[in-house]
């Protein structure tokens, strides 16, 4: 609208026409670059290693997001992200995941209007149950031995 008013004011002179052309070109160029400078195509990347391992089913995913722009984080069970689920939408820069069963998980992230980042692969392989219960039994034995020493000692004392 402003541009048309300006046109009306200066259309009488040749010089003015040249100026008008230059101004139109300038405004067109500025308009072309406006979306880029407003941050719409901001790229977001993970700061974790590309391949992660977990033997306890939890992991902390981190990404660069100092400008706190809205992001979307997806998890997939296939590297192609077919039937992927969105785990997080918001402007944080990390997400704690826990309670994951054995398996391979893939993650990718993007700003809400940007392109997807490179994927991260997480392999969850829990400790063996034999090792876990063996340590449980040893722990129980050590603990009840301590209790026995204290209770027996306190009884002797009294």
């Amino acid at each position: 609208m402003l541009l048309f008013k300006f046109k009306a004011c200066v259309q009488h002179s040749h010089l003015s026409r040249l100026l008008l052309l230059q101004l139109q070109l300038f405004l067109f160029t500025v308009a072309l670059f406006l979306p880029v400078s407003s941050g719409c195509t901001e790229t977001v990347k993970f700061t974790n290693d590309q391949y992660l391992e977990s033997d306890a089913g939890y992991v902390l995913l981190n990404w660069n997001n100092q400008k706190r722009i809205p992001v979307e984080l997806q998890q997939g069970s296939k590297h192609t992200f077919e039937q992927a689920t969105t785990l997080y939408r918001g402007s944080n820069s990390s997400l704690m995941l826990s309670g994951l069963p054995n398996g391979t998980y893939y993650y990718r992230i993007r700003s809400q209007t940007g392109t997807w980042s490179d994927k991260i692969t997480l392999n969850v392989t829990h400790h063996s149950l034999i090792k876990a219960w063996l340590l449980f039994v040893i722990g129980a034995f050590v603990f009840f031995s301590i209790v026995w020493v204290i209770i027996r000692g306190a009884a002797d004392e009294s």
Partner: peptide, 28 residues
């Protein structure tokens, strides 16, 4: 929890089984 973090309800969660007496003994 069942839908999104099933291991947290699993009585056979290996690392969690290990942590019980470890934490107890740390506290003692």
């Amino acid at each position: 929890l069942s839908a999104h973090k099933p291991a947290l309800l699993d009585v056979m969660f290996p690392a969690a089984v290990m942590v019980v007496f470890n934490n107890l003994l740390f506290g003692l």
